[in-house]
Design a protein around this nucleic acid. Structure first.
Length: 794
DNA sequence: CAGACCAAGCTTTTT
DNA sequence: GCTTGGTCTG
């Protein structure tokens, strides 16, 4: 008991020792919330509460795992249910599937499955989508589910044209899901919420079963989640929620800030505990966060404070473009690791969009910095993995139409689009699964005998696979790959693309199956495996045990902390994102997102912006985020990297936009400079440049006072001017410039860090021309336009 | 019907 | 820049 309460502050003890009755913990960032929650669970158990009556619900598996580990230390071996909302609902639904019109082996569609299903429903509904799009309809229906709007309710109450279309599609989409014995992500919550509402007895049973419920990140709950939690806390109102209105960043997913703002109204007997002391960040960082979030109108004022030592000033850094931003940050991290004994795991780079991680990834890789990316293009989205998964899904649930569609002709076996279309029609008309239609192929109108034979052959393969359904996953998968000749198919289709990764992925997938078998010797069913796969998020891939730099989105970073944090692309249109800045609510949510990012940092924080940003292939001028103007500018350390060299090939307009760069754009096509702006009076010239570019740059968006411009620190990324006074391309060539074309395979080069090496290959062109160089300590890649290589011998 | 080749569209954020 | 979807040819 002492161990549980030891070292906690007054308010933390209050929260931990509260057992019965509603509890609201308003916890600012870094206030030890997880600690409070885990200690509270341990305390409850120590006070005699049965662990099996406690359910702790989180939003991510990562958060649940962390909680499980920490509770495990405090109260070993106690079976407290912990997991995500979706997993919680998936398990309830498994149990009570018939109440929702499902069988207990129902499948969970992932987002791409849902997308396919939606397209099919739109077709079947025979609606015109000329004034809307599948995405819009999907999002309307998703929102409806999150607000517990049923198809019937929507049919009666909508007016907007898009809604009318969606209202027509919705019932058909739902019907098709039921026919497929499947649910989408929203349904997991939706079905359970409706089930609780319609079955009072079940509701009260479960209310008693889960006497104590804890909900983490309560500010992110939507109406469906609210209804579920509420429904389970009527007879036993022992509901403890934690959250921070300032960290609500899932409004787009239907999260309703009012759920937390009104908690005290919902439960008048609530005990509210505020955790405002921050144990994570330096006062410098906290001031920046606080100043920013004060600009939100929709919030409860909260006073964040800390007793931590004053630390380094927060840095605002200005780069030329995204590539330099990536290189600059990678360089800094490299230096900090080398010079200050930091570890790669101490660093996180956060961005608004996954797409921004690409150049960062490149920069890290070229420096040999170990990194992990937490993003969307992950394992289970790969084609080959999705194929195999689809087979498994179909084995587990013969009604899984999306899976059927995916695998029926993979590997190709003579079943074409027309045949599939006819099967689909038959299935739609008769409301049977497509596999069923395939079994009845000879009754399906319009299918040629030849095609029907192929379909029958597929059904036979399927039936053989089905017999193995209860084998271990490993056996099943190996048999599947064998039986479908899947590897041969991969080899054939990738022979010209030199992409051997597909087969490696299949092997990795089998390893994952082996691992699952090992971890679940008793309950390792196919169903359990598929559910686990469906409910793991990309963010769950985060491994804090690995010593790597972490790259992720701001959303994925919630709940984490790092000694050093870089937030990239703090620009108009990116943060706030252009799709979110139209409404006040959207704009404020972006501000909260920025707030979340800032408060991840313990010791150091760097925000960066670029003058140009390349999005979707084309480069355009970037404008600093209006949020920057809301920060305490006078205490930020502003750093602008001097233009090392510029490169405007492939972008004829660029020199018009940035006339100050250099007037050599014409000749610069094939020239790379080694380490200098080529500007004779670098210091003055650059200062002038900065003034010219930065003044309008800031005046519009940030209103940075002129006096502060002078304080902008000039940082040279690479060697200082070595050959001043260059005027012409010819001069440059003589004066240490090396044309990109001078690099060939076999060229001997010298690098300032890696020493001497040999070019072993050249790829790309223009600014992207890249050399792979072998040094004594391994290979490194250099973009020649930016590389600091010196040619020794051609 | 398969496979190759080309055009369009599109990316916030996640369970 | 990349993926998806469509079209064309064998």
């Amino acid at each position: 008991m002492d161990a549980i309460l030891k070292g906690l502050t007054e308010s933390q003890v209050q929260a931990v020792t509260h057992i019965d009755g509603p509890l609201l913990i308003l916890a600012g960032p870094g206030s030890g919330k997880t600690r409070v929650v885990t200690h509270r669970i341990a305390y409850m158990i120590a006070q005699g509460v049965s662990p099996s009556q406690i359910a702790a619900v989180t939003f991510t598996n990562k958060a649940a795992d962390e909680m499980r580990n920490r509770v495990g230390e405090l109260a070993p071996g106690k079976p407290v249910w912990m997991g995500t909302f979706h997993r919680f609902c998936a398990q309830l639904l498994r149990r009570y599937a018939p109440l929702a019109g499902l069988s207990e082996n129902y499948s969970i569609y992932d987002s791409s499955d849902s997308k396919q299903a939606m397209k099919r429903a739109i077709q079947a509904a025979e609606v015109s989508i000329s004034h809307t799009s599948p995405e819009q309809i999907a999002s309307t229906i998703s929102n409806a589910k999150n607000r517990l709007v049923t198809p019937e309710m929507m049919a009666s109450g909508s007016s907007r044209t898009g809604d009318v279309v969606a209202a027509k599609v919705y019932p058909i989409y739902q019907q098709q899901l039921l026919t497929a014995n499947a649910v989408d992500f929203d349904d997991l919550l939706f079905h359970v919420a409706i089930m609780l509402r319609n079955n009072p007895e079940l509701r009260s049973d479960l209310d008693a079963r889960f006497r104590y419920i804890l909900v983490d990140e309560y500010q992110d709950t939507n109406l469906a989640q609210y209804a579920i939690v509420r429904g389970l806390s009527i007879d036993n109102a022992n509901l403890a929620v934690t959250g921070d209105p300032d960290q609500s960043i899932y409004g787009w997913r239907g999260a309703d800030l009012n759920n937390i703002l009104d908690f005290e109204k919902d439960y008048p007997a609530v005990k509210t505990v505020r955790l405002e002391q921050n144990y994570r960040s330096t006062p410098n960082i906290l001031r920046v966060a606080d100043q920013l979030i004060r600009h939100n109108r929709q919030r409860k004022q909260k006073d964040l404070y800390t007793h931590n030592q004053e630390g380094d000033a927060v840095v605002l850094r200005i780069f030329e473009d995204g590539y330099q931003e990536a290189d600059g940050i990678a360089d800094e991290i490299t230096n900090a690791i080398r010079a200050e004994g930091m570890r790669p795991r101490d660093f996180a780079i956060l961005c608004r969009m996954n797409a921004l991680t690409r150049s960062l990834e490149h920069s890290m890789r070229s420096r040999g910095l170990p990194y992990q990316i937490i993003n969307g293009v992950e394992f289970y989205q790969r084609k080959e993995i999705k194929d195999l998964l689809a087979y498994l899904h179909l084995i587990n649930n013969p009604s899984h139409d999306v899976a059927f569609h995916r695998v029926v002709n993979v590997p190709t076996r003579g079943i074409g689009a027309k045949t599939i279309e006819r099967l689909r029609r038959y299935a739609d008309v008769n409301q049977v699964p497509m596999l069923e239609a395939a079994r009845n192929v000879y009754q399906v109108e319009g299918i040629a005998k030849r095609s029907a034979t192929f379909v029958t052959r597929f059904v036979e393969i399927y039936d053989r696979l089905s017999k193995k359904a209860s084998a271990t996953l490993e056996d099943l998968l190996r048999y599947l790959v064998e039986e479908t000749k899947y590897e041969a198919f991969l080899e054939k289709s990738t022979v010209d693309q030199q992409d051997s990764s597909a087969i490696a992925n299949v092997d990795e997938f089998i390893s994952a199956a082996v691992e699952f078998d090992r971890q679940h010797p008793e309950d390792g069913t196919l169903e359990a495996f598929l559910e686990q796969v469906a409910l793991v998020a990309d963010t769950d891939a985060f491994e804090d045990s690995d010593d790597r730099v972490t790259l992720m989105t701001l959303h994925a970073a919630k709940g984490l902390e790092f000694p050093c944090v870089y937030i990239v692309g703090v620009e108009q249109g990116l943060l706030p994102h252009s799709r979110s800045m139209d409404t006040d609510a959207g704009f404020e949510e972006e501000r909260r997102l920025f707030f979340v990012g800032i408060t991840r940092a313990m010791q150091r924080l760097q925000l960066s912006i670029c003058k140009r940003r390349t999005v979707r292939g084309d480069t355009r001028p970037a404008v600093p985020s209006p949020f920057l103007n809301e920060l305490p500018l006078d205490e930020l350390r502003k750093v602008e990297s001097v233009v090392d060299r510029d490169w405007f090939d492939e972008d004829p307009d660029a020199d018009n936009q940035y006339p100050e760069s250099w007037d050599l754009a014409d000749e610069s096509d094939d020239i790379v400079m080694n380490g200098d702006t080529g500007n004779g009076d670098t210091g003055n010239g650059d200062a002038g440049e900065v003034h010219e570019t930065a003044a309008p740059f800031f005046d519009e968006a940030c209103q940075l006072p002129e006096s502060e411009l002078a304080e902008i620190v000039q940082v040279k990324k690479r060697k200082p001017a070595s050959v001043p006074g260059l005027k012409t391309a010819a001069d440059m060539l003589n004066g240490g410039m090396t044309p990109v074309t001078a690099y060939r395979e076999g060229t001997q080069v010298r690098h300032i860090e890696y020493g001497e090496g040999t070019v072993i290959s050249i790829t790309g062109r223009g600014p992207k021309r890249t050399a792979t160089v072998r040094f004594d300590d391994g290979e490194h890649h250099f973009r020649l336009a930016f590389a600091n290589l010196e040619v020794i011998d051609v």
